[in-house]
Nucleic acid binder design. Structure first.
Length: 468
RNA sequence: GUCCCCAUCGUCUAGCCCGGUCCAGGACGACGGCCUUUCACGCCGUUAACGGGGGUUCAAAUCCCCCUGGGGACGCCA
């Protein structure tokens, strides 16, 4: 049994969207789970649509997700000579032939076949004409006309197509360039790819490609086709249909491991487990676990997955991300004024409440802002900062000021002590204090929050609240 | 039109290959409750599905056929 080599072969015509990322993830997992290699090939033979930006975007997205590839990136366009060499071999061995039928002629064939209810295909006019090379001539595969071509799909099981359904596909265009199906086969073979895991839309290409493998007498790799991802409306996710670049999720403040986890579970399962570490994914992944029906991308569930990772994450790392996002928003200079160590202390209080980094940055404002800029919500002020409440705050202020340093325990002692002393309910005291220090917005618990804010800021905020 | 693929709660899915243990399990969501100074987190509970019809069988979500519905492909695109 030779070593598993799987590949991801995107065409660089745009960003890497969530569907492509999932295909890449599964191919990567397939290789990693078997200790094999994962190679990346850029299918840039469409000179018109391929761009350098798209190539960079794909590479960036893969690296953000941590889908590292082995070896050098292969650019398909660089293999044109090799492709043509194979085509020549095919002609020599009688598996391919020149054809001078015009595009118009072939289109007409297809159209009339369609009308008659037959499969639209090239009729093989030039199969036996033994034409040589010439202006405007293409090279076609001399495909078998009877029998059938089948394969065992890693995810769908056995699939078979009558050869009469397939036509003599073009291998080399009239401008001398090789076509996709030919190039893919040659590259996969040359790169030693043993298992091809790709999108569902390639199922129909597979038998055609197998025909080329057969004609060259090459070993046919195993194929697997993963179903596509649907939007909330059950329509195929496409760029105009909400298929976002994976980097958009980065911008929205989601964690890469959450994207990986969610994508892995979209169409793949391992019993009832929902959350997987990267190591577990590698350990448990098996194409058998892949589902064979399309799935809907559910943002709500994805957010839940993300929040799980947000909670578990190392505060130091989250703090760095918050700082990054802050810098993106207000600029490096402004962001540099914020004390990172302070943010590190704030983060744990927000981890159970923030759905994303963006969300966390939003929620951390209460902590970052100075008293003078703290916004007090009118409703909360009216409800909780009554004159009696202010009188309580006056008394509590004295106690806080007397404290050398606010800690979880000292805050608790002061608040609880005050409550028992006055025979009040905690709520009667807690809410006014909370409003005083947070302005009324939802916030973490007082015992945690006040120590992080610090004595000076706490005192100042209470003073300001009393003045309102 | 022809060919290929698909079909379990609103969503992601387990179960299907090797029929009984499934009056179908888990997760997200929604709803209710507990915890509680607010908001979350967490915990507990409720809700909700085998697309339809025929078979086969003592027994079918599981096997077979048909229908319906969805998707994909049919390029000198990839």
């Amino acid at each position: 049994m030779s070593k598993t080599v799987s590949r991801f072969a995107p065409s660089p015509t745009g960003f890497l969207h969530i569907g492509g990322a999932r295909t890449a993830l599964f191919a990567w997992l397939l290789a990693r789970s078997e200790g094999g290699e994962f190679v990346l090939r850029i299918e840039d033979t469409d000179r018109e649509r391929s761009t350098k930006e798209a190539i960079d975007a794909i590479i960036d997205a893969m690296s953000w997700l941590g889908l590292e590839h082995d070896g050098e990136i292969v650019f398909q366009s660089k293999n044109a000579d090799r492709h043509n060499q194979v085509i020549d071999q095919l002609i020599e061995s009688g598996h391919a032939y020149y054809c001078d039928c015009s595009k118009e002629k072939v289109d007409a064939m297809r159209e009339s076949a369609m009308k008659e209810g037959r499969k639209p295909k090239y009729d093989g006019t030039c199969r036996e004409r033994n034409l040589g090379p010439g202006e405007d001539r293409v090279v076609r595969l001399k495909a078998p006309q009877s029998g059938s071509t089948g394969f065992r799909d890693m995810v769908k099981g056995p699939i078979s197509v009558e050869n009469s359904e397939l036509d003599d596909m073009i291998l080399r265009r009239s401008d001398g360039t090789p076509t996709y199906n030919l190039a893919v086969v040659v590259d996969d073979h040359d790169m030693g790819v043993t298992r091809v895991l790709r999108g569902d839309d390639h199922v129909n290409n597979t038998p055609r490609q197998i025909l080329i493998y057969n004609a060259m007498n090459w070993d046919v790799p195993e194929f697997g086709h993963v179903p596509m991802i649907l939007g909330p409306d059950k329509k195929k996710l496409s760029k105009r249909h909400g298929a976002l670049s994976v980097m958009e999720y980065e911008k929205m403040g989601y964690l890469p491991e959450a994207v990986i986890n969610y994508l892995a579970r979209l169409g793949w399962s391992h019993g009832d487990q929902e959350l997987f570490t990267r190591e577990e994914l590698i350990k448990y992944f098996n194409p058998e676990g892949l589902g064979n029906s399309p799935s809907v991308f559910d943002l709500t569930k994805f957010e839940w997955v993300n929040s799980q990772y947000m909670q578990q994450a190392d505060p130091e790392r989250i703090a760095d991300l918050v700082m990054d996002f802050l810098a993106r928003e207000v600029g490096e200079e402004e962001a540099a004024k914020v004390d990172r160590e302070y943010v590190v202390k704030v983060v744990p209080l927000l981890q159970p409440r923030a759905k994303s980094i963006v969300d966390m940055l939003e929620q951390s404002r209460v902590f970052l802002v100075d008293v003078s800029h703290l916004h007090y919500e009118e409703k909360a002020v009216k409800k909780f900062l009554t004159s009696e409440a202010k009188a309580m705050l006056e008394e509590l202020l004295v106690r806080f000021e007397a404290e050398e340093k606010l800690t979880h325990d000292s805050v608790e002692a002061i608040l609880k002590g005050y409550v028992t002393e006055k025979g009040l309910k905690f709520k009667d005291v807690g809410q006014p204090v909370r409003t005083a220090v947070s302005g009324g917005a939802p916030s973490p618990g007082l015992y945690d929050m006040l120590p992080v804010l610090g004595k000076a800021q706490t005192v100042a905020r209470i003073k300001r609240a009393i003045e309102l």
